[in-house]
Design a protein around this nucleic acid. Structure first.
Lengths: 154, 154
DNA sequence: TTTGAAAAATTGATATATAAAGTAAATTTT
DNA sequence: AAAATTTACTTTATATATCAATTTTTCAAA
């Protein structure tokens, strides 16, 4: 048991510093999402969730299961169902039945989706590069490490 | 104009590293939000957006305008309207007309809200402290600095 | 001081999101 | 192998979110 008052104060300060980091993460994330959302809407008439799913499929041309998509994007299962529904109706993605497991679907990007994403991902990289212009390579590496540390917990 | 091929490769690597940071920020943020959401629902039968607004009001007992709330939380104006509506109907927040500007409202936490938040914020600090347990004080400071750098852009 | 533009909120339409319940298929248990 | 679980996904209900349009007020300029 920790009964040392100096240590308690130190622990409390650390906790508050961690809280500050969390609040700043939230603000920064929402800020970036806002900019990306504007670019996607004005330039491509699409939304961030659709882009996120399609970008994932673009990076994995062999396709993914619905559950793999939701795990990768850290969103709920039902959420992915709806977004993929719209992508399919727009002809940008396709659902294929899996012969190995008839409960599951293999979701894949279509040729139309691939062509679109070839262009969009290049722009996306530029948007991020501008937004993160003040972040050095060292800081980026450190930031990535911190984010991984956070996600490792519970 | 940059025509040096070595520099181009370096720039490209940096851009890709920044993109990696962004993707990890998104994942970490969603992970933490998921944990907080679960705690708030199971422990207090409330939601993350409601908590975020109420926590802001709790930290500013003199109250804030709707637009100040939305700016602070980096969400849209219409969004805040709805969340505050529910907080008011639950008796946790109140709207007051501003004599200085009849277009605006002053939103304040109620006594009932304050009592509730006194307890919730303490728990919230603990949840974050656990989730960020692997983040040292130095890393937290660096992380905060990185987040501020990002938000300063555009 | 009247006109015009900007600011503060709300509203309505649409798209996300989650949670919980439900369906169907695959696995594990007994 | 029949029963109980688990897994993969969808569906429904509800709560966020954004955007665009609208209302009301304020502010600035002619």
């Amino acid at each position: 048991m920790n009964t040392d008052s100096q240590t308690e104060i130190t622990d409390d300060n650390l906790a508050r510093q961690r809280l500050r980091l969390w609040l700043q993460m939230l603000k920064a994330t929402r800020h970036v999402e806002g900019v990306l959302r504007d670019e996607l809407r004005s330039g491509y008439d699409t939304t961030l969730p659709r882009f996120d799913v399609l970008a994932t499929l673009h990076a994995t041309p062999e396709g993914m299961k619905m559950s793999e998509l939701s795990t990768h994007l850290v969103v709920s299962n039902g959420n992915v169902t709806g977004v993929v529904d719209r992508l399919v109706s727009e002809g940008l993605a396709e659902r294929t039945n899996m012969e190995s497991d008839r409960r599951a679907f293999l979701v894949r990007i279509t040729e139309k989706g691939r062509v679109l994403m070839d262009e969009m991902t290049a722009n996306h990289l530029e948007w991020i590069d501008k937004l993160f212009a003040d972040v050095t390579e060292t800081d980026a590496a450190r930031g990535i490490s911190i984010m991984l540390d956070i996600r490792r917990k519970s």
